[in-house]
């Protein structure tokens, strides 16, 4: 996808607005393709690539466990204790899903062919 070529995520705010029935990443003109930050179009902003949440989620899991242990040290039957452990579960589930997704998308050709099975490079032949 064009957005990931420069290693950054390019998002137009219109994608998330209510009126976008057909969200599409706007095509870029050639000069801005590899220099998206030079684009004068104020609609575009650069955000870190969100396809690498692995470390972020691992940190979140580790942090949330620590927080839960603290929250429960004061009062082990409080709502705060349960809520803190619930965050641990949420983070652990998210980390596990991210791992599964990464496993699936480790082969770029496979991913491309999932979307474009009719192209030449995705043809498979029986002997």
């Amino acid at each position: 996808m064009a957005s990931s070529i420069a290693g950054v995520n390019l998002t137009t705010p219109a994608i998330l607005s209510k009126s976008s029935d057909f969200p599409k990443i706007h095509p870029f003109n050639f000069p801005t393709l590899n220099n998206p930050w030079k684009n004068k179009n104020r609609k575009m902003y650069v955000a870190p690539l969100s396809a690498t949440p692995d470390n972020k989620l691992s940190d979140l899991v580790a942090e949330s466990v620590k927080e839960a242990e603290q929250a429960c040290a004061d009062d082990p039957v409080s709502g705060e204790c349960a809520a803190a452990w619930d965050v641990v579960e949420e983070a652990s589930a998210a980390a596990s899903h991210a791992r599964d997704r990464k496993k699936e998308s480790s082969d770029p050709l496979e991913n491309y062919c999932k979307d474009n099975p009719e192209t030449d490079e995705c043809r498979t032949y029986d002997n």
Binding site: S58, V61, A62, E63, S64, V65, K66, A68, E69, C72, C81, A82, A84, W85, D86, V88, E89, S92, A95
Partner: peptide, 15 residues
């Protein structure tokens, strides 16, 4: 997962 242990897994289920 870093940060997790048998205790933390058990504690989360129980809480």
């Amino acid at each position: 997962e870093r940060g997790h242990s048998l205790e933390s897994i058990k504690a989360s289920i129980e809480a």
